[in-house]
């Protein structure tokens, strides 16, 4: 009998091992690296991309950092704007009504259309990419924060006012803690959207970056490199989502866990 913990680890590790093994067997059977290269070949290519400058004269580290920089810039910008809009919507009836008519429309527009529009209006530039991401992500963030602002416990604010709390204190100790769950769900969601749109924008719009390299090798029909860049991207994003975000969230919600247990 395996105890629960050992079993969990075995199954989780086993699942990755089996995935790689299936891939390896499929590659072996296919016997054509043009169609399905083996995981080993991919690993070797990734290692090579990291040390040697590629066709653009830059190593993988450059492209990865560039993509990350774009993701974080676009993410930060849409979060800031989205939170601001959401809060204003929560406070002001007129803004609320005006935007509630527009936001569902924005949310329905397919990403690809947004990206195309942004590129056509603002060119194949960093600004075009940034605006594309913001156009898609900001409404989501705004809606989430708006819901949070609406759900705010009024009695707690009254309590703060009754104690003559200063505005900054009110914001820090009463407003923000209540908004935090909404902030975080907006964060998680926005982040997932941001990197997908950045990838899309890089593939056909922007210069350099993971998506650019991926498209570059696609046009050369170089399967090994295409898969190598996809794997790099996926591993990077999984690490960010489950490493950084999960940890941040755990810390921010410590007070909730204290109640739950």
């Amino acid at each position: 009998m395996m105890t629960g913990g050992v079993r969990t680890v075995t199954l989780r590790v086993g699942s990755i091992v089996v995935l790689l093994l299936l891939w390896w067997v499929a590659a072996r059977l296919m016997h054509d690296p043009e169609v399905l290269p083996s995981p080993g070949a991919i690993a070797a290519t990734i290692a090579e991309d990291f040390v040697k400058p590629g066709p653009t004269g830059h190593s993988a580290i450059f492209h990865i950092s560039l993509t990350l920089a774009r993701i974080f810039a676009a993410f930060a910008a849409s979060m800031l704007l989205g939170v601001a809009i959401g809060l204003v919507m929560g406070r002001n009836r007129l803004v609320e009504r005006a935007l509630l008519a527009v936001i569902p429309l924005m949310l329905t527009i397919p990403t690809i259309l947004m990206v195309f529009l942004a590129v056509m209006w603002f060119g194949f530039s960093e600004a075009g990419g940034l605006i594309a991401v913001m156009a898609v992500v900001t409404p989501y963030v705004a809606v989430n924060i708006f819901e949070g602002a609406k759900a705010m416990d009024g009695s707690l604010i009254d309590m703060g006012v009754a104690f003559k709390a200063q505005n900054s204190l009110l914001v820090r100790k009463v407003y923000l803690p209540q908004l935090m769950p909404y902030m975080f769900s907006a964060f998680r969601y926005a982040f997932g959207m941001t990197w997908k749109i950045v990838a899309l924008a890089e593939t056909f719009g922007l210069k350099f970056g993971i998506g650019y390299m991926f498209f570059f090798w696609f046009e050369q029909f170089n399967m090994v490199q295409v898969l190598a860049w996809i794997v790099m991207f996926v591993v990077l994003m999984l690490a960010l989502e489950h490493g950084v975000f999960a940890r941040l969230e755990r810390r921010a919600f410590a007070w909730r866990a204290a109640i739950a247990h």
Binding site: R7, T8, L11, R12, G14, S15, I16, V18, L19, W195, K196, A199, L200, T203, G211, F214, I230, F233, V234, M237, L238, E241, H242
Partner: peptide
């Protein structure tokens, strides 16, 4: 326990890819 990693990986691959 076995499949949730697979699902996570699938979720992470962008549609363009």
């Amino acid at each position: 326990l076995f499949f949730d990693t697979w699902i996570m990986v699938l979720l992470t691959v962008p549609s363009v890819c």
